[in-house]
């Protein structure tokens, strides 16, 4: 299963990675699906703190230099990792917000989203977990 998660499809005659990343939320999170890109930007920019039912949003990310994080920023959010970092720093060091929780690996990301109510993060497209809902983005 895990090997399947990490499997990388190589495009013929090219060394470029063609991997897909999806937005994942804890099962049963009250969110309008599909989610708009600008709402998602506000969530990962740590400027939106509650879901529509009032539960706290818990944002999980991978380190700035990880491949999946970079892929998520560019493919889904249409933003560059350095801009997201700038936005978080502005909140953290001015007392106006908190940073997302940085996890060490994709497995940890999957486990934390599955076990934390209100959690949101991202995973490789092939991931399946009964406690995780894949959130389409429009």
């Amino acid at each position: 299963m895990i090997i399947l998660l990490f499997s990388i499809q190589l495009i013929t005659s090219s060394t470029a990675f063609c991997e897909e990343v999806v937005v994942a939320v804890h099962k049963g999170t009250s969110v309008i699906s599909p989610i708009s890109r600008y709402t998602l930007s506000a969530i990962f920019g740590m400027r939106s703190t509650t879901w529509t039912d009032g539960t706290a949003i818990k944002v999980f990310v991978l380190p700035d230099d990880s491949h999946l994080h970079s892929l998520f920023c560019k493919q889904i959010l249409h933003i560059f990792p350095h801009q997201l970092r700038t936005a978080w720093d502005r909140l953290v060091y001015s007392g106006t917000g908190q940073a997302p929780i940085v996890l060490g690996s994709e497995q940890e990301m999957q486990a934390r989203i599955a076990s934390t109510p209100g959690a949101i993060g991202y995973l490789p497209k092939e991931t399946f977990d009964e406690n995780i809902t894949i959130l389409p983005v429009e």
Binding site: T49, T50, G54, T55, A56, I57, V92, Y93, G95, Q98
Partner: peptide
Amino acid sequence: NGSWSPLPN
């Protein structure tokens, strides 16, 4: 610095 969110808001 430290920050604490006792409630989501």
